[in-house]
Amino acid sequence: MTTTEGVQTTARRRWLRLTNPFIYLVAIFVGGVTILPIVYVVVSGFRTTGQLAADPNALPDPWVTENYSAVLTSPEFWQQIQNSLVIAVITTLVVVGFGSLAAYALSRFVFRGREALYTFFTLGLLFPVGVAILPLYLLLRNLDLLDTAWAVALPQAAFGLPVTIVILRPFMRQVPAEIEDAAAIDGCSRFGFFWRFMLPLSKPALITVSILAFVGSWNAYLLPLLLLSDPTQYTLPLGTAVFQSQYSFDTARILAFTALSMVPALALFVLAERRIIGGLSGSVKG
């Protein structure tokens, strides 16, 4: 073992030394192309539309903060953040709550038709929200829910159930049956077991599905676009798109707005990077 490792490290060291410049060049190029548009938006937000028209690709001279302060002091921006937050939280709570209850029953109960029911839920992975959007709109209109957070959150939660159940069920299956037996002997009810043991034991998977649901909701555009027409109900993505079409004459202001609307998603990403990458690649890697 030690010998192979030794051979390998020497080989790797030589390999590193030989190829480094080229690899780093590729890495810098790819990273640069990826990050440049984002940096451009953030930095150009400090210029005026006049500066931008004179030369779109220059550094701010002088740096102006009016664009950013105008967005940050506008009540619309904060309203949209709040709306997005409310919708994302409702979506996440509903999908994780309902999904974990169902996944628990589907993983630990024995009953006829269990696998059929599981398939019934997993089929939803193949149903794109676009297909159901017209009837959904009519349904929510009839329920008088249009222009409310529920109109967006509930369908999102419903369409998020399949992936939530698919991720949670195998996880809950791995919890040893002995724990459940012991809890039952101690007089713990089915729900008590679910609440006091199953949820804490499934925490990693619960965090993964929560992040998937939250980020999906936070970034969503199609449902808010069609179900929210009242500007006071706009979510951040919807508001960003509308802002872009309304202020098309004031490029600098759009840049600042776009830069600021990047902040929450990027902040969440930096805070939970490992979870997000682990969750996303884990959920597809197998």
Binding site: T34, I35, A220, P237, T258, S261, A265, F269
Partner: peptide
Amino acid sequence: APYVLSEVI
């Protein structure tokens, strides 16, 4: 990073 940003942005 671009993957985390919304399609709108």
